[in-house]
């Protein structure tokens, strides 16, 4: 965590297994993917009607993710739970993985977060075209009064381009800043017992920040997924908006209407 090149997987580069142009976070994110695959394989290996242990935990997780998307987007969010839930679990696992000493959070590098933001925005527009058709999706760029189109089309395009930029930069900045603060706090640590130049006992001055980092890892994963689900809901549901406002009280409950994005 301290030195940017000094993670536990650096031997892949010194032994020339990986070429030097591959960023060091790539093997780390592969480790995260393999861990997630192994855990889900173990949880679904012996499925039983009355879940216990790991299967129980995973069912609770999936149910929580489904409630999250339904709370944010309404009943249509159930269809997008797989994508948003996969984003959530992957980002959360990557953030928490960086807190293990000697490991490097893949989200603390722009290489990972730009990929996440771009794939999220491609998925948003894929869903929008699938739900509304290509014609309606193009009309959504034009805007309401047709004579304002020369002004509104560049505005919409810039707005769409700003979404992956803000998603990826927010995730990267938060996790990178958190890791930098942990590294700085760890360097403050007074070494209490030193034997022949080798430190034996050091105060864990970074411990409070590590505990706070667990919270921010959850928070950044939640924020990423909430923004992606709001983007999906607003890009798909523009033509539902009219009767939604006349419709009744239950529409007002949705977070999509409460947060101006």
């Amino acid at each position: 965590m301290g030195h940017p090149e000094g993670s536990l997987l650096h031997w892949l580069y010194t032994l020339h297994i990986l070429p030097s142009w591959v960023p060091e976070v790539v093997p780390h994110s592969f480790v995260v993917i393999v861990l997630l695959v192994i855990v889900s394989y173990l949880a679904t290996r012996n499925l039983s009607k009355i879940p216990s242990g790991l299967q129980n935990f995973m069912e609770w997780t999936v149910e929580g993710l489904e409630n999250f998307t339904v709370d944010t987007m309404g009943p249509m969010g159930r269809r997008y739970t797989p994508f948003i839930g996969a984003c959530f679990l992957y980002i959360l696992a990557m953030n928490l993985y960086g807190l293990i000493p000697g490991m490097k959070a893949p989200t603390a590098s722009l290489n990972t977060t730009v990929a996440m933001g771009l794939s999220a925005i491609v998925a948003v527009h894929y869903y929008a075209i699938r739900e509304n058709g290509l014609k309606r999706w193009l009309v959504h760029f034009v805007g309401d009064p047709i004579w304002l189109a020369p002004l509104l089309i560049p505005l919409h395009i810039v707005g769409e381009l700003a979404r992956p930029l803000s998603l990826s930069l927010r995730l990267y900045g938060n996790i990178f800043g958190e890791e930098t603060v942990i590294a700085i706090l760890a360097s403050f640590s007074p070494i209490l017992l030193r034997l022949a130049g080798v430190p034996l006992l050091a105060l864990p001055t970074q411990l409070p920040m590590l505990l706070f980092a667990i919270f921010t890892s959850f928070l950044q994963a939640i924020v990423f997924c909430m923004l992606v689900s709001i983007y999906i809901a607003t890009t798909i549901g523009e033509h539902h908006g009219d009767h939604g406002h006349e419709g009744g009280e239950h529409e007002y409950d949705l977070l999509v209407d409460a947060v101006p994005v």
């Binding site: 709370d71 930069l169 900045g173 800043g177 928070l219 924020v223 977070l255």
Partner: peptide, 22 residues
């Protein structure tokens, strides 16, 4: 509970502006 969700989201959005400027 709903207000807390919106609170956390808004706080994160404001905080990310500071991170952009850094």
């Amino acid at each position: 509970s709903r207000l807390q969700t919106v609170l956390i989201l808004t706080m994160a959005l404001i905080e990310s502006l500071v991170i952009y400027s850094c």
